[in-house]
């Protein structure tokens, strides 16, 4: 019972913080919407997208890019959470969480689940706007995509948690954008299909195929059409689980990296 009370409180706090900061929601939506409404329109003529699963007909570029932008929302939310955890750790409220008598691995997992809840909320807000702009998926896709969003949120949220345990200072966060976020996003199938990348470079296509974020995007893409993509599902869950274990080690008082930093 204590454990459920604690989980509920951590998720509730994260949601309240999110809802109390409308600017955070707006900035979370503006970025993908610019891609969807401006870039996708611009690229529509330049990039024809051939028929490939899960699509059963020719699609416009904006339809193709929608799951990638969902991934973008989740990726940036995870990085925002990570940033706030570094801030929290420096300012102390992360320390308060860690003084709970419940096991630390559980507290870190609760923090991850809270981040996933915010991430799912942001994605649905984005999908609602995209739906208004006619860049929509089948109606049932909005339901079937939920487990994919949770799995993808787990992987990206665990990455954010791990990064927050590794980053020494808030100032170092710019490096995360350059060395983590941009490569993850641009070296994936979020913006262009794998076969299109392969036309340009075999090497880049291979890197994209190995990128876990590619699998996250593909998981969402298939789920939006009510389909399960087995390989992406396994990759996302395995990488997510592994990152979560590393994050828990990162926050461990005896082996953790916080210890070496003396914070």
């Amino acid at each position: 019972m204590k454990w459920m009370i604690c989980l509920h409180a951590i998720v509730r706090r994260e949601l309240l913080r999110f809802l109390n900061q409308p600017s955070r929601l707006i900035s979370a939506l503006v970025r993908p919407l610019i891609w969807l409404l401006v870039f996708a329109t611009g690229f529509r003529a330049a990039l024809g997208v051939a028929i490939a699963p899960p699509y059963e007909t020719y699609i416009t570029y904006s339809v193709y890019v929608l799951p990638g932008l969902v991934g973008m929302v989740q990726l940036f939310n995870a990085m925002q959470s990570s940033l706030s955890m570094v801030y929290d750790r420096e300012m102390g409220s992360m320390r308060m969480l860690l003084t709970s008598p419940l096991p630390r691995w559980y507290l870190i997992t609760c923090k991850l689940l809270a981040g996933i809840a915010v991430s799912v909320l942001q994605v649905y807000a984005f999908l609602a706007v995209a739906w208004l702009c006619d860049d929509d998926a089948p109606l049932f896709g909005y339901v079937t995509v939920l487990p994919a969003l949770i799995a993808n949120g787990l992987m990206l949220g665990a990455l954010g948690l791990l990064l927050s345990s590794l980053i020494r200072q808030l100032e170092n966060f710019a490096g995360v954008m350059n060395f983590v976020v941009f490569p993850l996003f641009f070296l994936s199938t979020a913006l262009y299909p794998l076969w299109k990348i392969r036309e340009g470079s075999e090497l880049l296509a291979d890197i994209c195929a190995l990128n876990p974020f590619t699998h996250g995007v593909e998981l969402v893409r298939f789920a939006l059409y009510g389909q399960i993509a087995p390989v992406p599902t396994l990759v996302v869950l395995a990488v997510g689980g592994m990152l979560l274990i590393l994050a828990i080690i990162g926050y461990s008082p005896s082996r953790g990296l916080i210890r070496r930093k003396g914070r």
Partner: peptide, 15 residues
């Protein structure tokens, strides 16, 4: 968050 929300959060961390 409100004063009460802050206190409730701390209470819940202790179950």
């Amino acid at each position: 968050l409100s004063v009460e929300q802050n206190l409730r959060y701390a209470a819940a961390l202790h179950g």
